[in-house]
Every structure is written in C-alpha cells, then in structure tokens.
C-alpha cells in the first residue's frame, strides 16, 4: 500500500517536481480561486484562462517552447483582455461577462490557430493541457515565485478585497481602495492562470482554482476556514491525481482536475451546505 502511495515520489524526480509544482499552485492559485468564487466571477476566471492562450501561442510561434516567451506573452494577453473587457463594459451597454465572453472566444480561436501554424499536435496538447510531469527548474521556480507573490499580495489586499466582494459601496465610501482591490485582484488572477497554464494547461488551470474553492465553500461559514480547506483539498487532489496518472498512465493535468471534481461532488453530497443537508429528516432540533 505504502509502496503504491509513496514510492512513485521517492523513486522518480519528475514526480517530486510535479508534487512541488502542485503544492505551489495549491498555495497560490487556489486562494485566488476562493475570491473568484466569492466575487461570483468563476466563469470569468474560465474566460480569462482562454484569453491567455493567444499570447502564449505567439510566444511559442516566435521562440518555440520557451518558458519566458510564453509566460510574458500569456501575461500580456491576459492583462490586455482584462483591461479591454473593463473598458468595453464602461463604454458600451454590454455587461462585463458578455464582453469577456466575446474576448475569450476570439482569444481561444486565435490561440489554437496560431499554435497549429507551427503544426505539431504534441505542442498544441502541451499548451492546452500542460505538462506537470515535465516541469523543469525554470518552470518550477516561476510557479513558486508566483505563488509566493500571490500569498503576500493577498495578505496585503485582504481587507479591501473582502469589502470589495461583499459591500463595494461601503469600501468606496470609506477609502480609495476599491479600484486597487479590483484591478489588483484581476492581475493576481492573470498571473496565477499563467502559472497554472505551465503545469495544467490553459484549459485545466481554472480547475484547481475553482473546484477546491467551491468544495470548501460548502463546508465552511468563515473565510479563514474556507481558504485553508480549499488549499488542503487542492493539494490532496493533486497528490491523488498524480498517483492516478502514474499508476493508470492517464494524463496528469486532467487527472488532478478530476480529483478536484471528486472532492467537489463528495462535498456537494455530504457537506452542511450541500444537497443532502436540509433534505434529510431532522431527528433532534435545537432547543432554541
């Protein structure tokens, strides 16, 4: 049993690297996902992950599978789409989700087209689904650096960000933090999506952000517990997903996200905020 669970990590360096990368992602990207969920921007996170693709693809077109070029391309493309969606929302009568949907559909189409210009399906798969089992030193450092910066930024932004989520009018009334919280948070989303993109690919990166957050939301009434649970669920799903991938020879990225999905469905069934709670007969209610 222990052999099945531990020896893949002790025997193979690529599994240890994958584990470290996933731990960093769980610590950085998942808390960002918690706030995406609480800001009711889950689908927007999905849209933004697609928006990164053409930038990364252009980097790929110019320099091949180069970490730096694809990272910078992805970050630039993500920031451009965030800003463009914001401008379109303010200047037209489209709501932000509609303008983001327009941008991301175009981005996805453009991205896939650009990657296929160089014409290797393997590379397209790499971009779309990541390569968590082939993280080199540079990618690992990048993911860890983004996770560290994210945790520091979230700690600094926490109070304004919480207010921006649940009572933005109050925040605007007492301070000028509102735009800082809003755009600062979107920048964090872009950076973490790029980080997740290297490990899990553009299509899977949002999975490790939103699914653990949604599962944790079902268990917790307070934000600290929710953040902690989400990170734990993300990390446990990563370990389970990597092991599943190792033993059954399926791609690691989708396996990790599927494990997050298992945690989500389990929570949906069993958690106090889930489907069964409140539908089961109550044997003893409280006295008051």
């Amino acid at each position: 049993m222990i052999d099945l669970l531990v020896s893949p990590f002790t025997e193979f360096a690529f599994m240890r690297r994958a584990l470290a990368g996933c731990l960093a992602l769980s610590l950085g990207a998942t808390p960002v996902g918690v706030f995406l969920l609480l800001r009711r921007m889950s689908l927007m996170g999905d849209a933004m992950s697609h928006a990164i693709l053409p930038g990364a693809a252009l980097g790929y077109l110019a320099f091949g599978l180069s970490l730096g070029a694809m990272t910078i391309g992805g970050i630039v493309a993500g920031l451009v789409v965030v800003l463009a969606a914001g401008v379109v929302t303010r200047a037209s009568n489209l709501k932000e989700d509609a303008s983001l949907a327009a941008f991301y559909l175009l981005s996805l189409a453009a991205g896939v087209m650009i990657v296929s210009l160089r014409g290797r399906n393997l590379d397209l798969l790499h971009v779309l689904f990541g390569s968590v089992l082939a993280l080199d030193d540079a990618s690992l450092l990048l993911i860890a650096a983004i996770a560290t910066a994210t945790m520091i930024a979230l700690a600094l932004l926490l109070r304004p960000l919480v207010l921006e989520c649940f009572d933005p009018a109050f925040l605007r009334g007492v301070s000028r933090w509102s735009p800082v919280a809003h755009y600062g948070f979107l920048v964090l989303v872009v950076f973490n999506l790029v980080s997740g993109f290297h490990a899990l690919g553009t299509l899977m990166a949002v999975g490790i952000m939103i699914l653990p957050a949604a599962a944790a939301r079902l268990w917790s009434r307070g934000l600290p517990l929710m953040l902690l649970l989400a990170v734990l669920i993300a990390f446990a799903s990563s370990v389970a997903g990597l092991l599943l991938s190792y033993h059954t020879d399926v791609p690691a990225g989708p396996a990790i996200v599927l494990m997050c999905g298992v945690a989500y469905f389990f929570s949906l069934a069993a958690a106090p905020g889930g489907l069964l709670a409140g539908r089961l007969p109550v044997r003893h209610h409280l006295e008051s």
């Binding site: 109070r159 989520c165 649940f166 009572d167 109050f170 939301r217 917790s220």
Partner: peptide, 22 residues
C-alpha cells in the same frame, strides 16, 4: 452612507463581528 440592503452580498462568509468592525 448606507446603501439599500439589496446592494450587499448577504451570502459572503463573514462574521457579524468582523462586518461591524469594518
């Protein structure tokens, strides 16, 4: 300024103490 009640997100996981302390 106290906006209308509908403008705040009632479901946000925040305790009464923390909300008032803001």
């Amino acid at each position: 300024y106290l906006a209308q009640r509908g403008e705040i997100d009632h479901s946000f996981p925040l305790s009464v103490f923390d909300m008032v302390a803001l």
